[in-house]
Design a protein around this nucleic acid. Structure first.
Lengths: 119, 119
DNA sequence: ACTATATTCAACCATATGGTTGAATATAAA
DNA sequence: TTTATATTCAACCATATGGTTGAATATAGT
């Protein structure tokens, strides 16, 4: 069962809306890395990258594991899966397979309303 | 060939990061609608919804067609397809099929750099 | 103990975002 | 022509975002 938390989708899509953060995800897709290594290829301060990592962390897209003074970042699957699910079902519906998505939207709407997490 | 414009992905994911806009897309998935009809179910001013529509339009996710004073909004496929492609390939890579995504990332990186549209 | 490294924190800045209200514009209907 | 409807525009507000720099904190190495 995929969970549909509006806030989680907000944060996930929001995190993906920045090229630096997409690139960080791409870096991590090749393997876990620490903050300094992640920051190196980006043309900005370490503190700026650190902030991007916090955004990714809040979206649940990466997980941090401290090893002494070094923070090792690793990808986390779930939020991306849910973002993908949203788009997949949206397209399934829109591009033809109507009934399924209509049901899905109903559920989503209810959840978003019920939890009052509409922004 | 999918096109990888960094700015387009920024705008697309950015547009999807708001629950009102996701709901508008859901409304439009059931069929074209005008601004007033789209606005009705949302607990905010018409002007606010109008602004959201402009965001969706700039992301290319909806297309506007004026019929006299009524603006009819319709979904547009391409940007959503590209957002989906990004996530799909990211996950393909990360969850096992390494070689393909590595190539893809190379191309993406080049495009994003070459066009200098990195924010 | 001292020094160097890894990371965040805090204050600051400029611009973006998401909302409001009231006026402007364009078209439709009387 | 007058009035009503559809939509945007403009000004404003509060908060968020993405960056900076310099200081603070924590751990490692000598």
């Amino acid at each position: 069962m995929v969970e549909y938390s509006s806030k989680l989708l907000d944060r996930t899509f929001g995190a993906l809306a920045d090229p630096t953060r997409r690139r960080i995800l791409a870096q991590l897709a090749k393997g876990d890395e620490c903050v300094t290594d992640l920051a190196r290829p980006h043309a900005m301060s370490l503190a700026a990258v650190s902030k991007h990592l916090i955004v990714l962390e809040k979206a649940g897209l990466v997980k941090r594991r401290r090893k002494g003074r070094v923070h090792s970042l690793a990808l986390e699957a779930k939020p991306m899966r849910e973002a993908q699910a949203w788009i997949d079902r949206y397209r399934e519906f829109w591009e033809g397979n109507l009934d399924q998505f209509e049901k899905y939207l109903g559920k989503l709407q209810k959840k978003e309303n019920k939890h009052g997490n509409d922004k």
